[in-house]
């Protein structure tokens, strides 16, 4: 599912309602026929959200951030795996550099590493995941998204860039209205 629309149309708000971070004024979000507000924990085990804020602490390094994230989200992990994923994302040698010393794109890559570490989540919600990434980074993420879709996963995302994935997608156009 690909959500389009001009600035201020409510793309981010819609995604945040879908994650359960924001409760809707009216209506409800159902996952497996259950209101996500009621069955928050089951839903969140299946969910991976990538928002505007990266969720990466600037005083910790990439490795510490990812270790914490994995433990927090109940993802089985060992350091070797994390090193591998970081290498895949082009962050070799930067694993133990404090995040505040990394560039904006590199910080994003640290956050994006979650998509390779967390394999159990079926629902991915991505808010502008391509921002600040270079061509190579976009390609990497695109491939990961397609792989996830082929495994039967579900992706809801917004992007200002034209979407270039080799998979049938649905589009939802939001309009700005007062």
């Amino acid at each position: 599912m690909y959500i389009k629309g001009p600035n201020g149309a409510g793309k981010t708000s819609l995604l945040r309602v879908l994650t359960g971070l924001v409760s809707p004024d009216e209506g409800a979000v159902l996952f497996e026929e259950q209101n996500i507000i009621k069955s928050r924990e089951q839903y969140h085990q299946q969910l991976l959200y990538f928002g505007h804020a990266l969720g990466v602490n600037r005083s910790l390094n990439a490795l510490e951030n990812l270790r914490f994230w994995c433990a927090q989200h109940g993802v089985e992990h060992n350091d070797a795996e994390i090193y591998e994923v970081l290498a895949l994302l082009g962050l070799v040698g930067l694993e133990d550099v404090t995040v505040s010393h990394l560039s904006a794109g590199q910080q994003r890559r640290v956050a994006l590493a979650r998509f390779w570490l967390q394999t159990a989540a079926r629902v991915w919600i991505l808010d502008e995941p391509f921002t600040a990434l270079d061509v190579q980074g976009i390609a990497l993420l695109n491939n990961r998204i397609v792989a996830h879709l082929k495994q039967g996963g579900c992706v809801v995302m917004t992007s200002h860039q034209a979407l270039d994935v080799d998979y049938p997608t649905k589009e939802l156009q939001l309009e700005y209205r007062i």
Partner: peptide, 18 residues
């Protein structure tokens, strides 16, 4: 404050831990 600003809080709230 820091967790709120950098989005860590969001991620914590979206985990299955109460």
């Amino acid at each position: 404050k820091d967790d709120y600003n950098d989005g860590s809080l969001e991620q914590i709230m979206l985990s299955a831990t109460p």
